[in-house]
């Protein structure tokens, strides 16, 4: 088993930590923590796919989000769908037709920004598994409070902050373009633009963190 822990502190984001290869049976796994939010991700594949989900010319990406306790609810299902659509576009699905790439995301602790943390954990797990991808993706959540301030590092639990809107923005590493946005609440065009540029800066740190984690893992396997 290969366990690798990396952590980093950046001025504009809460502390990031990750452990790669935590699970021995999964093809790739990552335990990713962003601030006080933690997700354990496992990936399997490309492996056999259920007949009903088989796609003739590409791999099926399956995402399962497990809540901390109880059965998955609507929010988990929504997260699953968002992450599936994202990785369907990121993984080179046409390299493995009629197979499936499965990503299982176990929530460990939610202190806001669960979607962003799940996406980052899934990306690290896919890197650990060595799945072919077009580029890397990373997500950051921005909170806009009622005065119009944008905050990437919430001091309190986001649900307690009197935020008027929250935006989770996904970027790719290749050209730092927006891959997807999930939002709730009311915000202006100007606030959106400002959030995008702030998040873009913050994702650069996440990408740097990915690189450091992988470099540590790969430098070990001589």
């Amino acid at each position: 088993m290969e366990v690798m822990e990396t952590s980093t502190n950046s001025p504009c984001l809460a502390a990031l930590t990750c452990v790669l290869g935590d699970l021995s049976q999964a093809d790739g796994s990552a335990s990713f923590t962003h601030g006080n939010t933690s997700v354990l991700a496992a990936t399997y594949g490309p492996c056999e796919v259920r007949m009903s989900k088989e796609i003739l010319d590409q791999a099926t990406v399956e995402v399962v989000c497990k809540p901390r306790v109880g059965l998955p609810n609507c929010a988990d299902k929504y997260r699953e769908r968002h992450i599936r659509d994202l990785f369907q576009a990121t993984i080179l699905v046409n390299l493995h037709p009629r197979s499936s790439v499965m990503i299982v995301l176990q929530e460990r602790q939610d202190d806001g920004g669960l979607l962003a943390t799940s996406i980052n954990a899934a990306c690290l797990a896919l890197l650990d598994a060595g799945v072919s991808m077009k580029f890397l993706v990373a997500a950051v959540t921005a909170l806009i409070d009622k005065d119009g301030n944008i905050n990437l590092v919430p001091e309190e639990k986001p649900s307690d902050v009197e935020a008027s809107a929250s935006l989770t923005i996904v970027f790719n590493e290749k050209d730092l373009q927006v891959m997807g946005v999930t939002s709730s609440g009311k915000f202006s065009q100007e606030q959106y633009d400002r959030s995008v540029s702030l998040c873009r800066k913050a994702t650069e740190h996440v990408f740097k963190f990915y690189r450091e984690s992988m470099e540590r893992k790969l430098s070990k396997s001589v």
């Binding site: 890197l127 991808m133 077009k134 890397l136 790719n172 690189r211 992988m214």
Partner: peptide, 10 residues
Amino acid sequence: AHMDRIVLPG
């Protein structure tokens, strides 16, 4: 410069 450099997808 290429030799044994660590690369990531993309």
